[in-house]
């Protein structure tokens, strides 16, 4: 039981740190790109905004589906937490190492579609609704490449456990063994957390998309939930492709944190540099380019894994 308590505590700390880090990084990159000077404000802006939103009143629309509207941000956050729970942050942390971890991660990330769709649909308003349907198109397109590159990462380990996948990278990381894997995975991460060029459901041309009608605590919860999904996805990227906790000199959990940080910086950077792509263009690219590439990745990885036996 203490193991479980320790695991839950570690998960909570990791999530909290991760979400805070995302807010700091986002503000930092934004200030840097905008040409503002850098101040200590980057550390406080996120928490201050969260407190401000908690003081705001929630908004009402005409005949919303109130239950689903309240449920959506909670579900998004829970899925982020569940996704992170499948990843052993260090070999010593016992809770996470689930024999089918990568499938559980995939299931959690598939349900993100439900959370975002409900968030947009239940407001009973035009722009959120368009955002919701946009996300369905986006999610159905990135879902397949995501599943395929994660399966490729699992092939050399001959296991669906994330811990085993990390251990299988002792000699060489998957990012080198499967050069196609990480780039495809990072595209799907941007889709999962609808960040950067794939910020389609919450886009400015929809006046905020699925969050156009949301204010106050619900908006704060939505932003936090989105960051949690981003953190979980980045941590999975670090585990599946960058060797997770493996690394010399430093303790495992530090390596894990550093690798996750690198991927987070990449995604947050893209959010301030890369223009939002058109839904249609992304769907075409995902089906015509990403899925075939991901299939090649699966075949090559399987062949290499068989050859190594």
């Amino acid at each position: 039981m203490t193991d479980v308590a320790a695991g839950v505590l570690a998960l909570g700390v990791a999530l909290f740190l991760g979400v805070y880090l995302v807010s700091v990084l986002d503000r930092f990159v934004s200030d840097l790109v905008a040409g503002h000077g850098l101040t200590a404000n980057v550390f406080w802006a996120g928490p201050r905004r969260a407190v401000l939103l908690l003081l705001q009143q929630p908004s009402r629309t005409e005949r919303p589906d109130a239950e689903a509207w309240a449920f959506a941000p909670a579900l998004l956050g829970a899925l982020g937490a569940l996704g992170l729970a499948t990843i052993p942050l260090a070999p010593e942390l016992p809770l996470a190492d689930n024999a089918d971890g990568i499938v559980l991660f995939g299931a959690a990330m598939a349900l993100v579609m439900v959370a975002v769709f409900l968030h947009g649909w239940s407001a009973n308003s035009v722009f959120p609704l368009i955002g919701a349907y946009r996300f369905v198109a986006l999610a159905l397109s990135y879902e397949m490449p995501l599943a395929l590159v994660l399966i490729s990462a699992a092939l050399p380990a001959e296991s669906l456990s994330v811990g085993e996948i990390i251990r299988s990278q002792t000699d060489v990381w998957n990012v080198i063994r499967q050069p196609l894997g990480l780039p495809i995975y990072m595209v799907t991460v941007a889709g999962l957390a609808f960040w950067g060029p794939l910020r389609l459901p919450d886009a400015a041309d929809l006046s905020g998309g699925t969050r156009a009608e949301v204010s106050g605590p619900a908006l704060a919860a939505w932003e936090v939930g989105r960051s949690m999904v981003l953190v979980a996805a980045a941590a999975m990227g670090a585990a599946a492709f960058l060797g997770g906790w493996l690394g010399p000199w430093l303790p495992g959990v530090v390596w894990m944190g550093l690798k996750t940080l690198v991927l987070l910086v990449l995604i947050v950077w893209s959010g301030h540099h890369l223009a939002r792509v058109r839904t249609e263009r992304f769907v075409v690219v995902a089906w015509v380019v990403l899925i075939p590439l991901a299939l090649i990745d699966v075949f090559l990885s399987g062949w290499l894994a068989l050859a190594a036996r």
């Binding site: 790109v33 905008a34 910020r199 886009a203 301030h272 223009a275 939002r276």
Partner: peptide, 15 residues
């Protein structure tokens, strides 16, 4: 740039 969700670059252009 603002309409493309690139608010930081938009600030840069406006500056």
């Amino acid at each position: 740039l603002h309409a493309l969700d690139l608010s930081a670059l938009s600030i840069r252009a406006l500056a």
